[in-house]
Amino acid sequence: MEGGTVRPPDEPPATAEPSAPAALGLSPAVEMELQAGETLESNVINLGPDEDDGHIIVVLQSRKGATREEMARVAARYRKARRYLQSIASETDEVAEP
């Protein structure tokens, strides 16, 4: 090895940027939002009884450093939205396939 310091293999270099999400195929805007906020909850809502019926993936976030009151307000808003999203999923179960 030529010059430089030795660090354990799992330690990132000091100049490394925060780790980015794995290449999930998400838009840059979604990746930036995921990195910028604090995740409060995540959920997968199935659109049908079978795996190939699709899913809605929800990640509830607040701003980093939010107070307990702010997080509670976000969670209360999400409960209403979650009921709506779940109702969409149950409606798709009733749709007849062509």
Rank of each mutant, 00 (worst) to 15 (best):
E41Q: 08
G54D: 08
V74C: 05
G25R: 09
A20Y: 02
E2C: 02
E41L: 07
R83V: 03
E38K: 11
S19T: 10
E69R: 06
R73G: 05
S27F: 04
L26N: 06
T39Y: 04
M71L: 01
P49R: 09
R83M: 02
H55I: 09
V30D: 15
Y78G: 03
S87K: 11
V58A: 06
P13T: 14
P28R: 11
E41Y: 04
R79P: 00
D10R: 10
E11C: 11
V58N: 05
K64V: 14
A14Q: 12
P12W: 06
Q35F: 00
E38C: 07
A16T: 09
S27C: 06
A81T: 12
A14G: 11
S90R: 11
E94W: 01
P21L: 03
V74I: 14
S27E: 15
T92K: 10
R7I: 15
E31A: 07
G65C: 00
A66H: 04
S42V: 00
P98Y: 04
K80C: 03
A76L: 06
E70C: 04
H55E: 13
A72K: 15
A96C: 04
V44A: 10
D50Q: 12
A14D: 14
Q61G: 02
A14C: 07
Y84P: 00
P13W: 10
A75L: 15
L34F: 01
S62V: 06
I45G: 01
E38N: 08
L40S: 02
G54L: 01
I57S: 09
G3S: 14
V44L: 13
E38M: 08
Y78P: 01
H55F: 05
E38Q: 12
Y84W: 00
T92C: 06
I45A: 06
A29N: 08
Q86V: 10
A23Y: 00
E38T: 08
E31G: 01
P21M: 02
M32V: 05
E97D: 09
E70M: 04
L47V: 07
T15E: 15
G65T: 02
E38H: 09
V95W: 00
V6W: 11
Y78E: 03
Y78K: 00
N46R: 12
M1K: 08
P13L: 13
N46C: 10
E31K: 04
E97C: 02
P12Q: 10
I88R: 06
D53H: 03
